Simulated assay, not measured.
Amino acid sequence: MGWEYGIRATEPAILPEVVKRLASVLTFTNMYSLEHHANGFVLNREDPSWPRALEVWIEEASGVEEIADGALYIYCLFHIWGEEARGWMQQMEQETRQVEGGLIWFEL
C-alpha cells in the first residue's frame, strides 16, 4: 500500500504528545491539509483519486512482531512516495530524536 512504519516508546504514556509534535513539525504546501483526530492525524491532499498522503495513529499492537500484543505504538502510513514523503519522514524522525522516552522506529 505504501510505506508503513511503527514507533514504539519505553513510556507509552507519551505517545499522544508525540503524535501532536509530529503533526506540528510537518511542512507541506497548500495542496495539503492536516486533519486532527483524537488518536492521530491525517494529511490530506487535493486529489480526489488519492486523497490521503499520510496517516499517523496511536494503535494497539496485534500480531506486530516488534511489539507485544496489546501494547500501544504509533502507526505511520505514507500513502505517497518520493521526495515529499521522504521529507516528512525525515522531519518526523528528527522530532522523535528530540523526545525523551526511548522512541524507536521500525518498519512494518
Rank of each mutant, 00 (worst) to 15 (best):
E35K: 08
H36R: 15
H37I: 06
H37K: 03
A38S: 15
A38G: 15
N39R: 14
G40T: 07
G40S: 07
F41G: 00
V42L: 13
L43A: 01
N44P: 06
R45N: 01
R45G: 00
P48W: 12
W50L: 10
P51V: 12
P51K: 03
R52S: 01
R52E: 01
A53V: 03
A53F: 01
L54D: 00
L54A: 00
E55K: 00
E55M: 00
E55R: 03
V56C: 04
V56M: 03
V56S: 02
W57D: 04
W57E: 05
W57R: 08
E59A: 12
E60F: 08
E60L: 08
E60M: 10
A61C: 06
S62N: 13
S62V: 11
G63F: 11
E65Q: 09
E65I: 10
E65L: 03
E66S: 06
I67A: 14
I67F: 12
I67T: 10
I67L: 14
A68F: 15
D69M: 12
D69G: 09
G70K: 15
G70M: 12
G70Y: 12
L72T: 05
L72R: 13
L72M: 15
Y73K: 10
I74M: 15
I74A: 11
Y75H: 07
Y75V: 03
C76N: 15
L77S: 08
F78P: 00
I80P: 03
I80K: 05
I80G: 09
W81Y: 11
G82H: 12
E83T: 11
E83L: 09
E84R: 13
E84D: 13
R86S: 07
R86M: 13
G87I: 02
W88K: 08
M89P: 02
Q90C: 06
Q91H: 07
M92N: 00
E93I: 01
Q94I: 05
Q94H: 13
